[in-house]
């Protein structure tokens, strides 16, 4: 029982990372029909920016909570800006080109970000400052750390906030509208380019939060960390039904749990096989993912 609880908490923690990153995939896909293959690397850049701020602030001896808050906010803003810049220079010129062209461009951006970070920070691991350590409490025989609890709570708050934003603000409604029909949205007076940029900003900022939290949780980051998280998060977005925001959240948490259980009860060597088999199985039964709506085509 204690092992089970331990795995659930571990799964929810990694699942939170996946969910936050998956939101970026799903929002961008929903709005411009692009699978942003660079999004995993945006997450990685967020982790490195957070690391840079934290290590710089470490010398100032300010309380760790404030330092962490500053690191989170700066990383969110800068990573969000990076996402917007990528959209502006690499994707926007291709929005009306064939989808595969923009997909290849996204792969190019992914490669450029990885190798850019490699050139700046080197190929090795960078160690995050140990702010909280492994302090925690025992629940049902399982040791649960405060950092796990913090990650899960913060992720759920961000996800709830995003949901409210998309469904109950004008900008959010505009996002959903232009996902359906860009020209019609323009006729409503919506500045479509601006709203797309806001979407990229939000998705990238959420990925940055995930990046900083992953750095704190696993304590080590390197230039290649975006690949596996990006892959899992993308899987999560599709599992939940790509383009669907609650779907991405649920998909992320499910993949996190699946990973924890397969590592705990089978072997971590087979985790990816199990994750993909579950995904393929789900899509065979429900081709639009768990929360995806069926697209009715009019003839």
């Amino acid at each position: 029982m204690s092992e089970f609880i331990q795995l659930v908490i571990a799964g929810l923690t990694t699942g939170s990372f996946y969910a936050l990153v998956a939101l970026g995939y799903t929002m961008v896909y929903g709005i411009v029909r692009l699978i942003n293959f660079a999004h995993g690397d945006i997450f990685m850049v967020g982790a490195f920016l957070g690391w840079t701020v934290l290590t710089t602030l470490a010398a100032t001896h300010m309380p760790w909570g404030i330092g962490l808050l500053i690191a989170l906010i700066l990383s969110m803003i800068l990573t969000g800006g990076l996402g917007v810049a990528v959209e502006r220079f690499a994707y926007q010129p291709l929005l009306s080109a064939p989808p595969l062209s923009i997909l290849i461009t996204a792969l190019g951006v992914s490669l450029a970000l990885e190798n850019g970070v490699l050139l700046i920070f080197g190929p090795g691991f960078n160690t995050y400052p140990q702010l909280i350590g492994s302090a925690g409490f025992v629940l049902g025989g399982a040791h649960i750390t405060f950092i796990q609890v913090g990650i899960i709570i913060l992720s759920f708050l961000l996800m709830a906030g995003l949901y409210l934003f998309v469904h109950h603000t004008f900008i959010g409604t505009a996002m959903r509208a232009l996902a359906v029909d860009r020209d019609a949205a323009r006729l409503m007076g919506i500045n479509v380019e601006r709203v797309i940029q806001i979407t990229f900003f939000l998705g990238s900022s959420l990925a940055a939060v995930a990046g900083v939290m992953e750095g704190l949780y696993y304590t080590e980051i390197n230039f290649f960390m975006g690949f596996i998280v990006g892959l899992r998060a993308f899987t999560a977005a599709v599992l939940g039904g790509i383009g669907n925001i609650p779907g991405a959240m649920a998909g992320g948490l499910l993949i996190g749990l699946l990973e924890a259980f397969s590592a705990g009860y089978i072997s971590s060597r087979w985790t990816d096989v199990i994750v993909f088999l579950v995904l393929i199985g789900t899509l065979v039964v429900k081709p639009t993912g768990l929360f995806g709506e069926r697209v009715v085509e009019r003839m």
Partner: peptide
């Protein structure tokens, strides 16, 4: 002038085939 500014200048365009936001409610 970009389309969203023209809308602000007082020109409303009801496009061919209506182009509603189908998955949004009437009110939205």
């Amino acid at each position: 002038v970009p389309a969203h500014r023209i809308a602000a200048m007082g020109l409303a365009h009801v496009p061919e085939r209506r182009r509603l936001f189908a998955p949004l409610s009437v009110e939205e």
